[in-house]
Design a protein around this nucleic acid. Structure first.
Length: 540
RNA sequence: GCUCCUGUGGUGUAGUCCGGCUAAGCAUACUGCCCUCUCAAGGCAGUGAUCCCGGGUUCAAAUCCCGGCGGGAGCACCA
């Protein structure tokens, strides 16, 4: 009660000591009145207090610190070294949402400074993925197009003594870092550094020399112990072939690019957090404008790894069919499976912008997806592990069945001749004498149970109290396979049963549907047509 | 090992900065009812959280302070 009063009248806080006795007096007075009388008093004098508050769902991301309407610039900087996945989606959607929220701009920048990893097909795949997601950007660029600027900044650094060229081998550098010791290269004078720098473009071989940031070998933050800024890579670049062989590494390139591109808010995942100090320090010494760097938790689904290190062998060993295998968290796989971009966006936003580690709930994604696709999914009958059913006194030739219970999606004509397939699971539970309704058709009573069921029609009127089952006419039944993706990894072990194939039959109407159509098989679940004889199970 | 980040129901989050208008909101999952020729979608209701633990400050702490513990990440010439 005290809290309530202070909450609505914060100015009374100063006089708290005087108020407390007053409040307790009033409270005990009210408490002495019978409950029913209290309620009646409330209803007559303050009816608005009893009205229920409307529920409100949070939408969108939390406000951005330091963001001004109209001047926010964000960027999505993937490396074109693999196929886009849910992790990319999260980053891109956050980048775009904030840009939109503040009427700003989104830059789509390929962070392609390691020619050993980049491939043309990945540039394309990432772009396709973004377009599919519906992420709209205001500018596309490649870090590799700015090499001249980056070289200029590197020279500026060397000249100012902020960087030096180190010719020690990897092991020595790593050892020195751990032991907080400087190597003799660090003490080299400007002329030596300049000479070595120019030699990096010709004389040195890959691995023989790197440009190092002059940080502090004693820093608590290991990132600051003279990290690499540029190195030699002789591999031809997919865009620039062999034009360059000295390439900046991530820290150097990103800081310069973000600053130059006018980025105001740079988002990255948590594992980069220790690199913030370096990022800011590079820009400080270069005298360049500093964007705000903010980090968020990685997004990964339980048992659905995203890492190339894990996925690549799976693809190579044929454990999965490719990067679009429906068990994978790649965008292409999710698309094939029937996950819709709007659902991914809603899902990502529901995760909010936080640094806490997330065990992502695939359930929630499915739920969002189901609500979206339900309105447009055509309803069809499917019988898995089909059992044959003969209705001995069938009198109907044809029925018309609506394609959707609420939406007007047309009707389909289904021919019947008394022989059907029904789901094996349903069939197994039937005994002679059981009554059930063949959905949208008529009621039957089982006369003979077993794998070859027989039944007689008992009426056409709809009866809500008897069980219902979907059916497929035996004549013209289309044989299809249902691919049911399950969790890929269980306890870090590849799940050999992660892809189940179910044999099924469906209505001839299926044949006329385009590949990619989302279907809700009644009483079974949502599936996406993948080919003439295969569907992929989306979710329940 | 060192350093950094993080810890709210089964799950994901809101609230935490600026302690009190909330004996913790929303979503998802689950249960029940309504609607419906689906075990879908939609509507309604319900179950479920000593706000990681222990101290402290205060009239008042999920929120502030101290100390633990759990989880994650970084310690590359990868991003």
């Amino acid at each position: 009660m005290i809290s309530k009063v202070l909450g609505s009248r914060p100015e009374l806080k100063q006089r708290i000591k005087e108020i407390i006795p007053l409040i307790s007096e009033v409270v005990s007075e009210v408490n002495s009145i019978p409950h029913a009388t209290q309620k009646a008093e409330l209803e007559s004098s303050f009816p608005e207090l009893l009205a229920a508050k409307p529920k409100q769902e949070r939408t969108g991301l939390p406000p951005l610190e330091g963001a001004e309407q109209g001047s926010v610039v964000t960027r999505f900087p993937p490396e074109p070294n693999g196929y886009p996945h849910i992790g990319h989606a999260k980053a891109a959607i956050i980048d775009e949402e904030y840009a939109r929220m503040y009427g700003g701009k989104l830059i789509f920048r390929f962070d392609d400074t390691n020619p050993e990893n980049e491939r043309l097909e990945y540039y394309a795949a990432i772009k396709v993925g973004l377009d599919w997601l519906g992420v709209r950007y205001d500018r596309v660029k490649n870090t590799s197009d700015d090499m001249e600027v980056i070289y200029k900044k590197a020279e500026e650094f060397i000249n100012a003594g902020h960087a030096y060229v180190c010719t020690c081998n990897k092991e020595a550098i790593s050892k020195n870092r751990r032991e907080m010791k400087a190597c003799k290269c660090r003490a080299g004078d400007l002329s030596q550094n300049l000479k070595r720098w120019s030699d990096m473009f010709s004389k040195y071989k890959q691995g023989e020399a790197i440009v190092r940031f002059r940080g502090s070998m004693e820093s608590e933050n290991t990132v600051m112990r003279d990290p690499t800024l540029l190195r030699i890579i002789d591999e031809p670049h997919p865009l620039h072939k062999s034009k360059y062989r000295v390439w900046p590494n991530y820290d150097f390139a990103v800081a310069i690019e973000d600053s130059m591109d006018g980025v105001t808010h740079a988002f990255r995942t948590k594992e980069y957090e220790l690199r913030n100090e370096l990022y800011y320090e590079i820009l400080e010494r270069l005298g360049m404008r500093k964007p705000r760097v903010l980090e968020f938790a990685r997004l990964e689904f339980d048992g659905m790894p995203v890492s190339k290190r894990i996925l690549k062998p799976l693809v190579q060993d044929g454990k999965v069919s490719g990067y679009d295998d429906p068990r994978l968290p790649t965008l292409e796989a999710m698309r094939r499976r029937g996950i819709v971009p709007e659902a991914i966006r809603k899902f990502v936003l529901s995760l909010s912008f936080t640094k806490s580690d997330t065990l992502a709930p695939f359930d929630t994604l499915e739920s969002f997806n189901r609500k979206i696709i339900d309105a447009t999914s055509i309803r069809l009958f499917l019988a898995t592990n089909p059992a044959r059913l003969t209705v001995t006194n069938n009198a109907l030739r044809e029925v018309e069945i609506p394609n959707h219970p609420q939406k007007d999606m047309g009707k389909r004509k289904v021919e019947v001749d008394g022989t059907f397939f029904i789901p094996g699971d349903d069939a197994r539970q039937l005994k002679a004498g059981d009554e059930l309704r063949l959905l949208e058709l008529y009621n039957i009573r089982i006369t003979k149970a077993g794998p070859q069921l027989e039944a007689e029609m008992t009426g056409t009127d709809f009866r809500s109290e008897i069980p219902k089952v979907q059916w497929v006419p035996a004549q013209g039944a289309v044989k299809i396979e249902v691919l049911v993706p399950k969790v890929l990894f269980v306890n870090d072990e590849f799940n050999e049963d992660s892809l189940e194939t179910q044999q099924a039959v469906t209505e001839p109407y299926y044949l006329g549907l385009n590949v990619g159509t989302e279907i809700q098989f009644v009483r079974y679940g949502y599936c996406r047509k993948d080919s003439a004889n295969q569907v992929i199970y989306t979710h329940k």
